[in-house]
Computed example of a mutant assay.
Amino acid sequence: MPFTPLHLGLGASCKAIAHQQFSFMIFAGTQVLMDLEPLFGMILGWNTLHLYTHHLLGALLIGCIAIVIGKPISEFTLRVIFKESNWQISWKTAILSAFIGSFSHVFLDALMHTDMYPFFPLSQTQILATLVPYSFIFYGCLVGLAIGGIGFLIRRDES
C-alpha cells in the first residue's frame, strides 16, 4: 500500500506542538505526493519503488511542489469546511509543513524499505535500512498519532 497513514503520526504530533505554525493538511498532502512514485511503480511493475522521490534531493523537489500547490488547496478547503472567508496559511507555515513532510518521509521510509537510497545519486548505500525494527516504527507512529490527536484537541479547546 503506497499511501501509508503511519506518516501522519508525526504530522499529528507536529500539529499538536506547533498548532498555528504547522499545517497538517499540507503535511498530509506532501505524504501523498511522495508516494506517487511507489504507486506508479506498483501499477507498472517497477523493480525499485522508492528511487526518484525517496531521497534528499527528491524530498526537496516534492517539498517545493507541495508548498506551491498545498497552500492554495489547503486554504480553499479550510474555507469551504469552516465557512470562513479569511482563512490564511502563512508561507512560513506552508514551507515548514511541506519540508517536515517530505524529509521525514524519506527518513521513515529509509528505516523500513530496502530499496531506499536516501543519499542518491551521491551514494547508493542503505545505511538506515533495518536499523530499527519495523514494529518500533509502526507503533511509534501510532502512538504519535494518538498523542498528537489528543494534544491537538486539548489545544483546540483552549483556543
Rank of each mutant, 00 (worst) to 15 (best):
K15R: 11
F24W: 14
V143N: 01
H105M: 05
I69L: 08
T125C: 10
S102A: 14
W87N: 04
T77M: 14
F136R: 07
G29H: 07
I62P: 01
F22R: 04
I73C: 07
Y117V: 08
D35W: 00
V106H: 04
I65W: 07
H50F: 14
V106T: 11
F136H: 09
I26P: 01
E75Q: 15
M42P: 00
I62D: 01
T93R: 13
M112F: 00
I100A: 12
G151S: 07
L60K: 11
I147D: 00
L44Q: 14
T53R: 06
T130L: 12
G149S: 13
A16V: 04
A16D: 02
K71Q: 13
F27Q: 00
T114K: 08
N47V: 09
H54D: 13
E84L: 08
G101L: 05
N47Q: 14
S90I: 08
N47A: 12
L78Y: 09
I43N: 08
G70W: 02
V106P: 02
F107Y: 05
L142I: 12
I137Y: 00
M25F: 13
S102M: 02
T48K: 15
F27G: 00
L131C: 00
F138D: 00
S13Q: 03
A110Q: 11
S135A: 14
E84V: 07
M25H: 11
L78Q: 15
I65V: 15
L49N: 12
H113Y: 12
I137W: 01
I81L: 13
S135E: 15
D109A: 04
I127K: 10
V132Y: 04
D35I: 02
L128E: 06
E75G: 02
F136E: 07
V32L: 10
F27P: 01
Y117W: 15
L131Y: 01
Q88P: 01
L145Y: 13
T130V: 08
Y52D: 01
H19E: 05
I127C: 08
H50R: 15
G29C: 06
H7V: 03
L122G: 01
F138C: 00
N47C: 07
Y134H: 10
H7Q: 10
L78H: 10
N47D: 15
K71S: 03
L60Q: 09
L128M: 10
T114P: 00
I67S: 06
V68P: 00
A110K: 12
T130P: 07
A98P: 05
F152V: 06
A18V: 07
Q21G: 03
F99M: 03
